[in-house]
Design a protein around this nucleic acid. Structure first.
Lengths: 319, 319
DNA sequence: ACGCCTTATAATCAGGTAGACTATAACTGG
DNA sequence: CCAGTTATAGTCTACCTGATTATAAGGCGT
């Protein structure tokens, strides 16, 4: 039966190398409360489901599962990563997970039962530096990471662990790098400081650190999505996928700040956005901002086609 | 049998959603002749094979297939893209392709029969702008792209096609963007100007354009790899994976130029490399360069760990 | 030996950009 | 009408980037 379809060059004669392919979605939106991810199971899982014969493509399969499980239609989609799950190997079958990042607006939502929006920072409380470095880093993470580093057998490993922890979490006077979200999660996993590490057979000697966990490796996938998005907003104008049709420059800035987890210098942000000609004034203003009424802008769509390189460089405050 | 393994949440009751997963490798090296890709079948295919139960991970499966088919051991690997092949759908089975980019040095090669190194630019002759814009762009591509654009039914589509062609191939005074390698191939495919388009059921009215083709969608995967690599060398120091242990700054520059397909200003390149502290002098020199003997450098490995952000920005000459 | 060619290496200069900061305008709410 | 809040414009400086020129050190042919 395996040999029935097309030129497989005979490489799999006599074997079945069937796998099951799972599609997993990280659906991101930003509201006043900050950056959110679409979840099911009361925030414990990302929308997902197997790739089926009925699906025209991977992306359409993903859209189908997300819409079925959450009622959320998806717009912008990009692939994140594909990995084979070592822990879910059957007798003659393995599972491959193909993860995607989707950007949407929360108001697109049609009401649906099982879904809920959860803040990124419920899962990664150490990632939000908008009000300066969160206390959890120095109070909780640093001592436990040092404990983990010093638990290594040889001096070289101890040194290396300390260095990696310092780079990832901006210790010892280093600068915070918001794009290292995935490295940070993986470091905490390696140090058995997140709940998921215990499930993986690691006997966690150290207690878990604050931050909500998810089933399987869903939190790891979310960390991948955050890192990718934080990197991408700097060279591609993807932020606008998260904005309503009309918005003020401060709303745009707040969205970028929510994603990157750090504050941006206001005049510089405005200058950059305006000189890049990514937006255009509509002439309308809104008085709902509290102070002087703000101009309402809209995304300049044509620019997307003309300058495929152009990005939205973010002037992020240094210290 | 499908239900036997672990919590599948009953989503696939009564169905088999098995797929076959293929691993495909774009193995890149650079020699004096330029950037090369490792091929089998006399340059008609990339190394590939199905993901099997015996493989510990996707990456190790890929390494196994490449080494078996070409004798080439792989060092640096990164995932490119995963896609479901619409054209290879069986009764109860589909094929998923997971493509990877690998960087290596050609001298790593152990001799092996079926393999051969082929220049990128045999497959994409329009991509090499090191000696200025290649004649093929204006002589072959432009007239056929215009013909294709004007063949559209409505004026809006005609305008859009012309704009896309101009952006991708730097027509009408636009600047060449080497990172658009994939868009260019896809545009030529859409215009039925590459041989592969005919196989896809498209009745090619227009004749094919110069440039060697490959089986299935292997040339498309190669284009993806080129675009990814051309983008990545600008923000991550991956070039060094392609360099011998000791090299001169000009050799490094020539390698970057080979990949990006365009020339770099020499003093600026040196300044950038040196101030980034990505390399260190060995003290040794080589006289094999023809003129004054050049310093031999080596890659400064420790920098990789310390500055995960740092890249190798390329000062690429504008006009 | 000499000059010429080739490449290596250092130094300089101008324009642009990014970051930080200051100043002024326009509205709301007490 | 004043205080608070936000919007918007402008400035100043350090650094980066692209471009160019100058000098050094080898090989090679005559």
């Amino acid at each position: 039966m395996d040999q029935a379809k097309g030129p497989r060059k005979g490489r799999t004669i006599g074997k079945t190398n069937d796998v099951n392919a799972d599609l997993i979605a990280v659906v991101v939106a930003v509201n006043d409360a900050g950056p959110c991810v679409l979840t099911i199971e009361q925030g414990a899982a990302l929308p997902s489901g197997p790739f089926e014969l009925a699906h025209r493509s991977l992306q359409s399969g993903l859209r189908a599962w997300v819409e079925l499980q959450t009622g959320q239609p998806l717009g912008y989609i990009e692939q994140l990563y594909t990995f084979a799950d070592r822990d879910r190997v059957g007798a003659n079958q393995r599972v491959i997970s193909i993860s995607y990042l989707a950007l949407t607006r929360e108001e697109d939502a049609g009401a649906s039962g099982r879904r809920s929006w959860a803040s990124w920072y419920d899962y990664f409380p150490w990632e939000d530096h908008r009000s300066g470095r969160p206390p959890i880093v120095l109070e909780e993470l640093r001592p436990r990471l040092i404990e983990w580093a010093d638990g290594a057998d040889d001096g070289a490993t101890r040194f290396d662990r300390r260095r990696r922890a310092a780079v990832a979490f901006a210790l010892d006077g280093r600068a915070w790098n918001e794009e290292l979200a995935l490295q940070r999660y993986e470091l905490l996993y390696e140090a058995a400081l997140v709940e998921e590490a215990k499930r993986g057979g690691v006997l966690a000697i150290l207690a878990s650190v604050p931050g909500r966990s998810m089933i399987a490796d869903h939190r790891r996938i979310l960390a991948t999505a955050i890192a990718r998005l934080r990197s991408k907003i700097k060279y591609r104008p993807v932020v606008f996928e998260l904005m309503p049709p009309l918005f003020t420059l401060l709303q745009l800035q707040r969205t970028v700040e929510a994603l990157s987890g750090r504050l941006i210098n206001k005049p510089n942000f405005r200058r950059l956005i305006e000189q890049q000609e990514l937006v255009e004034k509509t002439g309308a203003t809104t008085a709902e901002t509290g102070g002087r009424p703000a101009q309402l802008y809209r995304f300049h769509h044509t620019i997307l086609d003309e300058r495929p390189v152009a990005g939205t460089k973010l002037p992020i405050a240094r210290a």
